[in-house]
C-alpha cells in the first residue's frame, strides 16, 4: 500500500472511529485529540487488520513512541517493509 493510500485509510479510521476532528499530520495525538493508551491498542488492532498480518509483541511495543499521524505512517511503512517476505 502506498503512503498516500495509507494516509487516506488512517485518517478515515481516526475520523470515523476515533472521532478526530480536522486531524493534522503533525498534530500531537494526545494533546490535540485526547488519544490515549487504550486508543493506541485499539488502533494497532485496526492496523493489523489493514496490513493483513499480525504484529509481534516487540513490534507493537515500538508503536508506543508514536506521537503524530506521520509517526503512524512511518511505523506502518516500516512494518510493511519488515514483513515483505512473510
Amino acid at each position: 500500500m502506498t503512503r498516500e493510500n495509507l494516509e487516506k485509510n488512517i485518517v478515515a479510521i481516526l475520523v470515523d472511529e476515533f472521532e478526530f476532528e480536522n486531524p493534522g499530520l503533525n498534530d500531537n495525538l494526545r494533546d490535540v485529540h485526547g488519544f490515549d493508551s487504550i486508543d493506541a491498542i485499539e488502533l494497532l488492532a485496526k492496523i493489523e487488520e489493514m496490513l493483513g498480518f499480525q504484529l509481534s509483541r516487540k513490534e507493537k511495543e515500538q508503536a508506543m513512541s508514536i506521537r503524530t499521524i506521520n509517526d503512524i505512517l512511518d511505523y506502518i511503512v516500516s512494518m510493511q517493509d519488515a514483513h515483505k517476505t512473510d
Partner: peptide, 12 residues
C-alpha cells in the same frame, strides 16, 4: 485465520 486478538478494552 489467526486474528484471534480480543478487543483491547473488552475487559474494561
Amino acid at each position: 485465520n489467526g486474528f484471534s486478538s480480543i478487543g483491547a478494552v473488552d475487559y474494561l
